[in-house]
Write a protein that binds this DNA or RNA. Sequence first.
DNA 1: TGTCTGACTTAGCAGCATGTGG
DNA 2: CCACATGCTGCTAAGTCAGACA
Length: 570
Amino acid sequence: DQWHAILVACVGMLVYILPSLCFFMPFRWEEERYTDGVKWKFLEHKGPVFAPPCDPLPSNVKFYYDGKHMKLSSSAEEVATFFAKMLDHEYTTKEVFRKNFYKDWRKEMMSEEKSKITDLNKCDFSEMSEYFKAQSEARKAMTKEDKQKIKEENERILQEYGFCIMDNHKERIANFRIEPPGLFRGRGDHPKMGMLKRRIRPEDIIVNCSKDSKHPKPPPGTKWKEVRHDNKVTWLVSWTENIQGSIKYIMLNPSSRIKGEKDWQKYETARRLKKCVEQIRAQYRDDWKSKEMRIRQRAVALYFIDKLALRAGNEKEEGETADTVGCCSLRVEHLTLHQEMDGQEYVVEFDFLGKDSIRYYNKVPVEKRVFKNLQLFMEDKEPEDDLFDRLNTSILNKHLQELMDGLTAKVFRTYNASITLQQQLNEITNSEDNVPAKILSYNRANRAVAILCNHQRAPPKTFEKSMQNLQTKIDAKKEQLADAKRELKMSKYLLEGEIEEQLMKLEVQATDREENKQIALGTSKLNYLDPRISIAWCKKFGIPIEKIYNKTQREKFAWAIDMAEKDFQF
DNA sequence: TGTCTGACTTAGCAGCATGTGG
DNA sequence: CCACATGCTGCTAAGTCAGACA
């Protein structure tokens, strides 16, 4: 009996201790994975944090209609404040924005307000706008102690709502705060800009957790829309958004097991493509000659996806979103064919808006067969007609699936991005270089990928100034070096060497920044480049990983940091 | 075969925290 | 120690793609 009791105690202890041990298991991505679509066995969380309620404006902050003061009902006032807060943005002057805003604002008005307010142009939001500006100034001017208090409160909320338990692991939640209400501003020329994005209430929320967990409680006096226990999905909370009617989710942070494993899998698929890409290329080149038009279109589209890293290009509902395209949805008007251009034959000029309404502009010499096919596809078509009228992403991906298990259009982007980084690093890293110069090489390799993937950014507002500042520093350093050379001999070499190194560092920094003016490196680093390539490169050349990845990125790529040896090749 | 929906990844940017250099 | 520039982080829009359904 005594032994039995001890045994029971030991088993109890184990059950208690094991989960916490798992927290510290370094290779948790190597734990057993579920099959048949099960994503977890246990999921417990505290639910979302709702947007803070809207405070009524103080009575001295007035709204004027047609020059006359008008007291707004609380619902009309809230929506008016959304507009007032955006007054400094150029888009509040856009016709579409104003029209959509006005229409949705009227829905929130009382009937008297509706009859009084008939013209948005007669609305004066300037006092509200000034009030919010003053508020944000006041926030900036807060005492250290007050700022500290806010910080502590945020930390408390993070600790309470920012984590969940998924299968014995405490995991960080990515977006546990519900999006606050406001005016929708899509990207680019969005037909719905200015529409009211409504406030999300507990009654809109679907909670997902395991049956045997402690279910999150809705705020007092409210109910969830639904509590479900679906372990075939990874989300914790969802709701339907009112602009596009799409579903939004609360999910885990990229550092979580579930995201990390998926990320790893993505790169493993891309590496499998590496093994058969030449064969696939041979096949699509052959298909350019097919007697079937749909095969030729598929083959030319795939060539673009492979060569230019274009996105697949799903169809979009007209009038619901900005007019953007990807490969399969290219229209005749997006290409110009040049038999000859700048001394090159068969040049295709691309000019279209892609994801996020980022412009893709490129002049590409292509194979004669591709060129001839394009002429054929464009024959007798209007500019607004589809280039590939016998093709869509579904057809293309079904074809790709037959060529390789798990192959889809986007795998080519991942593959080409990662292989480019690997090749560039192999090619341009000089082992004789010092650390800053090696990092310049790394950034250049990263840049080659960003250019391939068309990851652009608006030049930073302070770009010119910051370049100037840097140049001033460089000039000062040169001066200093000249001085040092004239100085007494004693410490000369030591000092000179040090200054030269500093100068070199500054110059490298200037080059890097200049080259990076309109290029965004972050997206490719985070989503397209197999982190094991970078980590292996760091190990091989003695570069601290912190120089390449910041804290968040190191957390996201923890799986790769554990895994990659210095000889890893993509 | 096409359409719709749901789940998930990819994207640029604003605002703020942080680190740096004078 | 402060001002300022920079880098990071959060935010949320906008894609991809599979599978259900007609």
